[in-house]
Nucleic acid binder design. Sequence first.
DNA 1: ATAAAAATTGAATGATTATTCAATACAAAA
DNA 2: TTTTGTATTGAATAATCATTCAATTTTTAT
Lengths: 215, 215
Amino acid sequence: MMKALVNKKSSEQASETEISVNHQKLIDATIETIAKRGLADTTIAHVAKRAKVSQGYANFRFKSKDNLLISSLQYLSDEYKKSWQKIFEEKNIDPIDRIIRIIQNDFSSKIANRNKISVWIAFYSEVKFRPSYLAICQRQDEIYSQQMEKLVSEINKIANQKEFTPKEVSETYHSMVDGLWQRILFDPKIYTNEFCKNLVLKYFKSIYVNEDRFA
Amino acid sequence: MMKALVNKKSSEQASETEISVNHQKLIDATIETIAKRGLADTTIAHVAKRAKVSQGYANFRFKSKDNLLISSLQYLSDEYKKSWQKIFEEKNIDPIDRIIRIIQNDFSSKIANRNKISVWIAFYSEVKFRPSYLAICQRQDEIYSQQMEKLVSEINKIANQKEFTPKEVSETYHSMVDGLWQRILFDPKIYTNEFCKNLVLKYFKSIYVNEDRFA
DNA sequence: ATAAAAATTGAATGATTATTCAATACAAAA
DNA sequence: TTTTGTATTGAATAATCATTCAATTTTTAT
C-alpha cells in the first residue's frame, strides 16, 4: 500500500520522520474526531479512518486508546503554552500591551475555535476522574496563574490601582476566558471571538479606568 | 422482595406515589453516579444499583438510558430555574439587593457543589452533539439572560452608569459563573464558594464604584 | 536482486453494556 | 383464599469496541 514517508536521508532519520508523521496524523485525527463526534463517540476505528491508517495500527502506535487521548490533550496544552510563552518572552513591551497580547491570543481563531474548545471541554468534564488529565490541566494553570499575577501587579503599580489585587484580577480573567470559551460552543452566532475579546477588554477597562488601550 | 411503597390511600394514588418515588430515586442515583464516576463511566447497572432497583427496571422505567440522562439534566435545570425564579418574584426588593441574592444563589452550596457541577459540565461537554441537551441548556440561558439584562439596566439607571451596557454586564457575569464553577471542580481548596462569590461581588464593585453593598 | 528488518494491515477475540423479556413477587379485588 | 393485574427481577441477547496478533507489505542493508 501507499507509504507516508516524507524524508529518506538515513535509515534512522527516515524512521524517525515517518513515526512523527503518523504520530501527528493520529493526534490531529483524534482532536478532529472529538470535535466532530464528541468524546463519548470517539472510537479508535473513527480516529484511524480519519488518519487513514488501520485500526490495529492506531492502537499499536499509541499502546492504548487512553494513551492516545492523553497525548492529544498534552499536544493541545503544549500548543497553548507555546503561543502564550512567546508573548511573555517578548522584551521591550509595556505590561499593558503584553496583557492585551494575551487577551488577543486567548481569543485568536487559532486558539479559541470550536474544534479546540470542544476538545478542551470534553477533557475538562473528565478531569475529576482521570488523574492524568488533571495533571496536564493543572500544570498548565499553575504557570499561567503565576505569570499572570506578576503581570497584573506590574500594571497595578503603573496605574496606581489598589482596590483590586493581582490575584483577584487574574482569577477573574481566567474564569471569564473559560466561561466565554464554553459559550462560544453554545452559541457561536452571539459569542464571536471579537465579542468575547471586547467583553474582556471592557472588564479591564472597568479596573483600569484611565487606561485607553482597553477601550 | 421489599416494596418501596410509601402511600397507600387508593389504588391509583398509591401507584402514582410509587412511580414518583422510583422515578426520583433513579434521577438522584443518576446524578450521583455521574458525579462519582463521570458520564463516560455511568452505566445503567451502576445507576440501578445505587437506586436499589434492578437493572432491567431502570431501563424499563425510563425507556432508555438516553431518556434517563435527559430527565436528569431536565431535573437539574428545573431545580436551578426554580431557585432563581423565586428571587425574581420577590416584591419590594431593591434591584441591587436582588442581584446580590442572585449571586448568593449561584454560589450557594445547594447549587454550586461538586456533585452538581460535575453533572453540568458532563452535559455541557456533549451539548454540541445532542440536540436534546442543547435545547434544555439554551432554554434556561434565554430566560436567564433576559431577566438579568433587565435587572442590570435598572441598576445602571439608579447608579447612573453609562459606560457598561446591561448586555455586557450580564454576559460577563454569566461567563464568570460558568468559569468559576469549572474551577471549583478543578481546585476546590482555592475556589471555595465564598471565594468565588467575593470575586463576583468585586467585579460588580468595579462597575458600580459608589455602591457599598458589593464590597 | 535478495534477505532481513520494520511497518502496517485487518480479521478474530474478549470485555463491556444497553436492552429485552419470560418468570416471579406483590397488591387489590372478588 | 383465590384470582387478576401490575411491578419488578435477573438472566439472556445483541451490539459495540478496545485490543491482539498472524499475515502481508514496504523499506533498508547486503
